[in-house]
Design a protein around this nucleic acid. Structure first.
Lengths: 218, 218, 218, 218
DNA sequence: AATGAATGAGAGTTCATTCAT
DNA sequence: AATGAATGAACTCTCATTCAT
């Protein structure tokens, strides 16, 4: 999975000339990206708690002091990780939904499938998702808000089109939480086989859709 | 909530003679119990990461070295915490289910209600549940297995009585995971108000039951 | 108080021609002066230890690397600070002495008053004086020598005019040290009120003069 | 110079039996004393800023972590240093004063002589005295208060016996500060020869006494 | 069985200095 | 001459664990 898109915007020169300044800015941006990717890899391998500054910078191939040219603190970086990835996930899911057949269930199937797909392509995200809540609460909070809001918008969309069995806002909110919860638990239950990450068996999505369709979608 | 029941089986003397040996064994057991309770309280207050051996032993009123007469390591204790509490939860839920009206939905309502009830009575368990996955993975694994097995048994029970809409084992397994996931997310979403732990509003259980009934129960 | 005068002699061009060379030399000199002033301000605010190269250069509006075009090291700059200010103090005191009534005691009164006056006008010098001994020993040494020499010359002056009760050189040297010591301690004891720097109460100078007159001046 | 007297009181067993407990407490006290002495030596050699925990513990022959069994922080130790020594100085001076001839000048001579004596026996105290103000402000503050109060009491004592030329409290306070200042400056000026610490030449005390007698003592 | 002093690896962070640009 | 990213040694402090008592 590519992360660059999710990185903080760099102040790229707009004029095309490869001036000295541009080159330098590019190098800076490259270092930041390397630290970011190194952090993701390190968290993926050792967990948040194990992602020490020393390990991250070693993985990135820079001196430990360099870290603090780019991030205020270890926590600062950690808190940025999940939101950046979360945005990637959001874009990925949206793309799948947009190209799905035009029906509420097809879109929902696209959502859950895209989620599994995303995780399967970036196995280290599992650790991030499950640990983020504890070790990088700030980042996790933003991640959760983003994912929840994303799902709420989807539900509103279907509601406006009259595709939902339920109309009460409270009930829809409860259902939304249940869907979010389910996709996380299901991925944990079915995407791990012998410590390796894989796509879940087909019946998982089918059963999920059957369950959700009966309860939520017309 | 009482914890003692959930402690690892101690080698209690069964014969009533208050011999010196018995007394000593009792004293030993008491120390273990105090460490255990101190650990729960400390994790509840400071989180897993903040539950240092020093803090736990201080809370228990023993010297830090004493700790290692009872537990292999800090991790060892941490891993025992959640399963012990998990068993408490299991017993609490079972009691509520046994006294519930004789219908699948009444029992399910008892399950989710008992869960919220349990958490509400022991607010520090939230920290344990949400952190346990990360900081005490071994213990969390056993906790999860226990809760899952408990729910699976419940589903089998209803299936045998013909109370389920679905009969495929795979589908039932998926549904089970979804229910487990939901109760956890819903508690996080609705049981926190301004940092304090409370029972969720009534509509949460109602909406949950409506959703589940439509999809799962006859 | 003006600082520029106290700067290390710059190689100023004396001829008036505004050649390009001159301009460049002026610019260079200006940068050095800005660094110098920034250093004084920074030490005044944060103390010697808090006067990091980063803070000084930021205050001066130049890049950190630029610093090393002008000073060998951080210590090098720090060591130059106090002598520069010390020279200012010397000039200030001399001016007051020259305009004083023509008597030994009037001159001594002018000396101590001018000292308090100087400190009161530049409160951040307190920090420099009290920290300088430790953090910029080289600079402090030169400062001390300068002040001592200044006082010794004053004593010689009075001696030659027959204004002193004592004539033994050793005794005069001891007395000189005592006067220097006294003015420093008295300023610390009486010029701080609630963290703010002020002129000492009148009785301080009066008592000082009474003491000194009885012991030293005819 | 012995430091032990100035150490925080240890909980010594009062009964004479060399029990196990006693032994242990003694060992603990010994470690604390070694750290304390190591700190004094290290500050004497490297200055306060150079007295890192690593250097102190290495000098004391203990592991770095051990430090924190005895002191809250590096600063904590540093702040204790000067008051402890200050108390030693106080006792030393008092002893000399008590055995001095019964006259105000004899006592004052005893005071200044004892001060020089003390410094001469513990050369590393010079660095402490001159740096303490900056690097261990809390400790220095207490030191200064102690020394000042000690001198004020002496002045009061002489005043009550009618041995002073001046009687105004303000004037006495100013004089007190001048004496304190003088002994410090004089020691710096006359006790260092080629980087080594020695007793000052005889004429220093004589000149000091002549000066002070003329101004202050009857 | 209980103690708690001692350990030392490892953590996050700072900052004077260098040097390619 | 000016830049500022990169460096890495040094810092203070924590804490699980050991072991002599």
């Amino acid at each position: 999975m590519d992360i660059p898109d999710s990185l903080p915007a760099s102040n790229r020169d707009v004029d095309g000339g490869p001036s000295r300044r541009l080159k330098r800015a590019e190098k800076v941006e490259a270092t930041r990206a390397r630290l970011f990717e190194a952090a993701i890899a390190t968290v993926g391998e050792y967990g948040y708690a194990g992602a020490s500054v020393a390990r991250v910078t070693e993985h990135a191939g820079v001196a430990s002091g360099t870290f603090y040219n780019y991030f205020e603190s270890r926590q600062d970086l950690l808190d940025q990780l999940l939101p950046a990835i979360s945005r990637q996930l959001h874009l990925h899911v949206r793309e799948r939904v947009l190209t799905a057949e035009d029906s509420a269930t097809a879109r929902e199937r696209a959502r859950i499938s895209a989620f599994f797909e995303f995780l399967g392509d970036a196995p280290h995200l599992f650790k991030m998702l499950s640990e983020g809540r504890v070790q990088a609460p700030e980042g996790f909070h933003r991640h959760l808000q983003q994912q929840t809001e994303s799902y709420r918008r989807a539900m509103r969309y279907e509601l406006e089109r009259g595709n939902l069995r339920v109309t009460d806002p409270d009930e829809i909110e409860v259902a939304t939480q249940m869907l979010l919860a389910s996709r996380e638990y299901l991925s944990e239950r079915f995407c791990f086989v012998d410590g390796r990450v894989t796509r879940p068996p087909d019946f998982v999505v089918d059963a999920y859709m059957k369950f959700v369709s009966a309860a939520l979608f017309k």
